[in-house]
Computed example of a mutant assay.
Amino acid sequence: MLFWIPRLLALAACLLALGCASPRLPPSPASHPPSPLSAEQSNGVAIHALGLVGTPYRYGGNTPEGGFDCSGLIGYVYRHSAGQAMPRTVARLAGFGRPVAASDIRSGDLVLFGAATPSHAGIYVGDGQFVHAPSTGGEVRLDRLDGVYWSRQPVQVRRL
């Protein structure tokens, strides 16, 4: 009469195992290292970013039609130019890719501004310039790293 208890326990164990074996969500971009970009991809990122100059700023925005904030601009450009998924916040971008000395900066590198935790980011496009989405009411624009405001900000450079 009690011979069915072990079978029932075995069946319960199988059902539990199947439940735990359900597919998992893919890891977030910040949880694995990005693929290194070729020089051609890095230049493509810079050219694409330059093409978005003039797009309206919008907090939380991540499309040319809806506008961009700084991390939305970066995510859009890297996704469409290099097929690279990027973290959605500046804080997460600060840990993405690898750090690069400012003296070794090249087109397509990220520039992040702020002291301990960066609060703003852009895409370096060469010749001392970067593209970014700076503020509410503004638009995506091209600025110089050695400009009056930006040269006074702590800057980090990151490369994918």
Score class of each variant (00 low, 15 high):
51 G>E: 00
30 A>C: 07
144 R>Q: 07
104 D>F: 03
106 R>F: 12
44 G>K: 10
15 L>W: 09
79 R>A: 13
66 G>H: 13
109 D>A: 15
90 V>T: 15
31 S>I: 01
140 V>N: 10
72 G>C: 14
124 Y>S: 01
66 G>Q: 03
50 L>F: 08
56 P>S: 04
47 I>G: 05
59 Y>R: 08
129 Q>I: 07
115 A>L: 13
55 T>Y: 04
101 A>K: 05
126 G>T: 01
75 G>I: 01
136 T>Q: 11
43 N>I: 07
36 P>I: 07
149 Y>W: 14
11 L>D: 04
154 P>L: 14
160 L>Y: 07
48 H>L: 12
30 A>E: 09
43 N>Y: 06
1 M>I: 00
88 R>A: 13
127 D>K: 15
121 A>Y: 00
66 G>R: 08
152 R>D: 09
54 G>F: 15
105 I>A: 02
53 V>T: 12
5 I>R: 14
97 G>W: 00
34 P>G: 01
126 G>C: 02
53 V>W: 15
6 P>M: 06
120 H>T: 03
95 G>L: 05
155 V>C: 10
136 T>P: 10
67 G>R: 08
13 A>K: 10
145 L>C: 12
144 R>E: 09
49 A>Q: 02
10 A>D: 04
66 G>W: 00
61 G>A: 01
34 P>R: 06
53 V>I: 11
60 G>D: 05
2 L>T: 06
41 Q>I: 01
